[in-house]
C-alpha cells in the first residue's frame, strides 16, 4: 500500500512536469477555469437577484450546498484527471502498456494525470463556501466544521468514483462518454442546489445510487437545523458522508471488472 502510494507520488510529479511545458497556455487555462466556474456562480446570483428565493431556500443556504459540492468536485477533477482522460489512452492503445507492468492498473491510471488547472474551481467553491460560512455560520462548533470538511472529502470520493466508472465505460465504448459526464458535471450541477427541488426519481437516484445527497444536503440540512430532509432522519444524516468512501471502493471493484472484460475482448 505504501509502495503504491510512493509510486503514485512519483507518477504524479511526472505528469505535472509534462503539464507545465506550455506555460503561456497554462496561465490562460488557469484564468479561464476561474472565469468559467465563476460565471456559473454569477448565474445563480443573477437568478436570486431576480427571483429572491429558491422554493424557500435563501441564497446563503444554497451557497453552503454550492460551496461544498464544488470543493469536492474540484478536488476530484484535479486528482481524477487520469481517469477522466482515460479514453485517449485506450484509443491510442496505451492501456496494454500499463497491463505489462507488475503494478495495479488503477494506481497507474490515477498516476497518469493531474490537472492543477481544475483548482480554479477550488477558488470559486472556497469563496462561495466562505460567504455561506460568514452569513450563516456564526454558531458552528468544531464538530460541525468537521462535518463540513468530511462532506467535502467524501464528496470528492463520490466524484472520483464517478470518474473511475466513466473510465471503466471506455472498456465497452469510447464514444459515449458524455453519459458519464452527466453524472460528474451534471451531478455537481444538481448538488449545487438543494436536492428537494427535484422530482422523486432524481432525489432517490442521488441518495441511494450516486450518494451525492448524502455528502451534501443531508448533513447540510442538519447544520441549517432544517429537520428531516428527503425523508431521512437527522441521526442518519450525520453518518451519511460515509457513503462517499464506500461508493469509491465499489467503483474500484467495477473498474477491476472492466479490466477483466477488456482483457477478454482485447478491443
Amino acid at each position: 500500500m505504501s509502495y503504491s502510494l510512493h509510486l503514485y507520488g512519483r507518477l504524479i510529479l511526472i505528469a505535472l512536469r509534462s503539464r507545465m511545458q506550455y506555460p503561456a497556455s497554462f496561465v490562460m487555462q488557469l484564468a479561464g477555469t476561474a472565469l468559467l466556474t465563476g460565471t456559473e456562480f454569477v448565474a445563480v446570483w443573477a437568478l436570486f437577484a431576480r427571483f429572491g428565493t429558491l422554493a424557500g431556500w435563501r441564497l446563503e443556504e444554497v451557497c453552503l450546498f454550492y460551496g461544498m459540492s464544488n470543493l469536492g468536485y474540484a478536488l476530484a477533477e484535479c486528482l481524477g484527471e487520469g481517469f477522466d482522460k482515460f479514453a485517449q489512452q485506450v484509443r491510442k492503445g496505451d492501456f496494454d502498456r500499463l497491463l505489462l507492468r507488475p503494478c495495479s492498473t488503477s494506481m497507474q491510471v490515477a498516476g497518469s494525470g493531474m490537472d492543477p488547472m481544475r483548482l480554479g474551481r477550488l477558488v470559486q467553491g472556497g469563496a462561495v463556501l466562505a460567504y455561506a460560512a460568514v452569513s450563516l455560520g456564526g454558531a458552528w462548533d468544531w464538530l460541525e466544521i468537521g462535518l463540513i470538511i468530511g462532506c467535502i472529502l467524501s464528496g470528492a470520493c463520490v466524484f472520483v468514483g464517478l470518474l473511475v466508472l466513466q473510465a471503466t465505460l471506455c472498456f465497452w465504448t469510447i464514444e459515449s462518454l458524455e453519459i458519464a459526464n452527466v453524472l460528474t458535471h451534471g451531478g455537481n450541477e444538481a448538488a449545487q442546489f438543494p436536492f428537494d427541488i427535484y422530482g422523486p426519481g432524481l432525489r432517490r437516484f442521488f441518495t441511494f445510487v450516486v450518494p451525492l445527497a448524502c455528502v451534501n444536503i443531508l448533513p447540510g440540512a442538519v447544520l441549517l437545523e432544517r429537520g428531516p430532509t428527503l425523508g431521512i432522519p437527522a441521526w442518519a444524516s450525520w453518518g451519511a458522508p460515509l457513503m462517499g468512501p464506500l461508493f469509491f471502493l465499489i467503483s474500484l471493484r467495477v473498474w477491476e471488472f472492466g479490466v477483466r472484460r477488456y482483457r477478454s475482448t482485447g478491443t
Binding site: 428565493t53 424557500g56 459526464n181
Partner: peptide
C-alpha cells in the same frame, strides 16, 4: 440521455425559482 438529464435538472431549478415569485 445527457440532454434529457440536463433538461430535467434545469427545468426543476427554474420551476423552483418561479415557485415563490
Amino acid at each position: 440521455a445527457t440532454q434529457i438529464y440536463w433538461g430535467v435538472v434545469l427545468a426543476a431549478i427554474f420551476t423552483a425559482f418561479f415557485a415563490r415569485s
